[in-house]
Design a protein around this nucleic acid. Structure first.
Lengths: 253, 253
DNA sequence: TGCACGAATTCCGATATATGGAATCGACGG
DNA sequence: CCGTCGATTCCATATATCGGAATTCGTGCA
């Protein structure tokens, strides 16, 4: 017997998801088609969401999400205001490296990018705020993994998806790599997720010493070489420490 | 006859709102009390939201919002990625001024802070990301108001709430002030919202020249004096222009 | 170890409510 | 001016939701 759920609420959330992920406002018929729902049903859901001010109607009668949706999500992140605390250190790192800087947290078996700072030089990277990548093949993900390994290792068996020729795909190899990461306090990604992208990352710790996030720099293989990575490594580690201190102090440093 | 709305969806959104705005996870009874709803009703709503992965359960059986809620809101802002584009200029301004920098957009008759950069020196300001203040009495709000005056003026009659002794509370005085703002390309707030806070702001324009946002610097009256404001004014205006160019280019400058 | 209390969770019959097909309305284009 | 397409409203019906009560679970205390 499948769990008893509230259909109306589920459908309403589907509507919100569809509209928030669409670059354009959508009309009722369009929405109904995408969600495989009845038109008049969708209309009532939309009307409700509009009354609650989560949606607004365009002059052409299509609907789009309002910033109230953003406020909702923002409030959630607000109680964990890492991005704000980390911003100064991230910008400094972006300036120093000339590459893109990320802040990631764990989201299931993925690294979720909660903040991102582009440098002027950086090309369009593979990641966006809110995006994610498998823990085992990006630098920030490896950091998060290495310092929460007991917890996460079980979930990864059979989930070490191959992304490139260099992706680590066996638990044995991963065990070894994680040990290295813990010793060095740094993780690297040498074209293990995308053929032409490399990165380095370091841990961010809460006052109790638990690793709650990771900061990392990444760039195109052609420019962000192994040597560049070695050179920037200490700065990344320091950025991690600086952010950890900011978390401790409760304000940006 | 009140419009016909879907009660289940409304209540579900209330649950999400309550949980997202609470600093702590909440239990079923607690939620039910706050929302004045039946316990078993709340339980089913929560179960549904949990199945959809918008909520998760703590070991102590209380519930909290997941980052999926944040992702939802983030996607909305993503289609209007002002914050990312504006970040470099905002940080530069924060560095230069040593004060807090805001990016605001219009939200009804309020200025909504969509991005905020604290300088190391800045004291805890009155605003948070996602927070808002009346358009007529903060610097960024005045900019947004001045350049969308035809549209917004009608909505403000009777809504010029007094916040401090210096708040502008008459349409006549506001008309004059708005004219000044348009001419100078800058707006100021001299303790008009909070007795001890001042600010300056400048417009951000889309490629068509419409004012879509405002950048502003604000600080404590004691430190951020009229002279400081005059001194930093040009830099604020330039930051506004720089962000406008970034919007045009589609990438941070 | 067992008991008692509060909270969460499940159950279930009554009924308010969501449903979806059909009718209506409204905008636009030929 | 009419025809088409989409949005919106209507309405009878089925049923999904509601909430009170019963049950289970967890925790602290004796």
């Amino acid at each position: 017997m499948p769990e008893r759920l509230d259909a109306t609420l589920s459908k309403g959330m589907l509507v919100l998801e569809a509209l928030s992920s669409s670059p354009h406002p959508l009309g009722i018929s369009d929405l109904a088609a995408r969600l495989a729902l009845n038109k008049s049903n969708v209309h009532r859901l939309v009307r409700t969401l509009k009354a609650l001010e989560y949606l607004e109607q365009e002059p052409d009668r299509t609907y789009r999400c309002t910033l109230k949706v953003w406020k909702l999500g923002n409030a959630v992140m607000g109680h964990m205001n890492l991005p704000a605390l980390a911003a100064p250190a991230m910008h400094a790192l972006a300036q120093l490296s000339g590459e893109t800087v990320h802040l990631s947290v764990i989201d299931g078996i993925n690294a979720l990018y909660v903040e991102k700072v582009d440098s002027a030089r950086s090309v369009r990277a593979y990641s966006e705020r809110g995006g994610s990548a498998p823990l085992h093949c990006v630098a920030t993900g490896k950091v998060l993994l290495a310092f929460n390994y007991e917890l996460l290792r079980p979930r990864l068996s059979g989930n070490l998806s191959r992304q490139t020729a260099r992706t680590i795909t066996t638990l044995k190899a991963l065990d070894k790599e994680m040990e290295t990461v813990r010793v060095r306090g740094l993780a690297t990604n040498l074209a293990e997720y995308r053929d032409d992208v490399t990165g380095v990352a370091a841990p961010v710790r809460d006052p109790a010493g638990r690793v709650i996030a990771a900061v990392g720099v990444s760039g195109p293989l052609a420019r962000f070489t192994r040597q560049q990575i070695r050179k920037i490594g200490p700065a990344v580690r320091e950025a991690g420490q600086r952010i950890s201190e900011a978390v401790d102090a409760g304000r940006p440093l």
